[in-house]
């Protein structure tokens, strides 16, 4: 295989970034290894666990299944760009208050899946919340608090806002 690196640009957490990537490198590897964003995690590497969930053009995707070059000229958001240094996203705030994280490994992926869900469905039912995070495995099995926290954050966000 040709391993010559290719240059590409993407908008990462609202900033234009230029990066050199190997042809068959995943977006997850680029984010973690080259760009130093270690929020997205590699659990399974095959799209089954959701720990690597990021937003690609606003949609939740498994970044371990995306080739980095497929994100060229597109918008990528990771957990690092969900809130700001000063202000947590309402979902993060609810997760902290409810003590959702146990070991914490799945949490960045869960938060990104939940944020994408609320962007699409601002007032989800409990069932919609459960399906919204059904692609995220939590081996600590802390799902009940997740659903509670996501429902509370949804109720707190004014209609029409992110």
């Amino acid at each position: 295989m040709n391993v010559r690196k290719q240059a590409m640009t993407l908008t990462l957490n609202d900033e234009l970034v230029e990066v050199l990537v190997k042809p068959y490198e995943t977006l997850l590897d680029t984010l973690r290894e080259t760009l130093g964003l270690t929020g997205p995690k590699e659990g399974c590497g095959t799209g089954d666990c959701g720990a690597c969930t990021v937003h690609l053009d606003g949609k939740a995707v498994a970044s371990c299944l995306v080739l980095a070059l497929q994100a060229r000229n597109r918008q990528v958001r990771t957990i690092e760009g969900l809130g700001t240094d000063d202000t947590l996203h309402p979902l993060q705030d609810a997760f902290v208050r409810h003590g959702v994280p146990q070991c914490g490994f799945c949490i960045p992926g869960v938060l990104m899946a939940a944020a994408a869900l609320l962007a699409e469905t601002p007032r989800p039912s409990d069932e919609e919340i459960r399906y919204g995070i059904a692609g995220n495995l939590c081996r600590c099995t802390g799902y009940t608090k997740m659903v509670t926290a996501i429902a509370e954050a949804a109720a707190a966000v004014p209609q029409g806002a992110r």
Binding site: G47, D48, G50, T53, L56, K59, A60, V61, A62, L65, V66, A113, A116, L117, Y131, G132, A134, G135, N136
Partner: peptide, 9 residues
């Protein structure tokens, strides 16, 4: 198909 993260791809 898959999960929402997979269905988007």
């Amino acid at each position: 198909v898959g999960s929402v993260q997979v269905r988007h791809l």
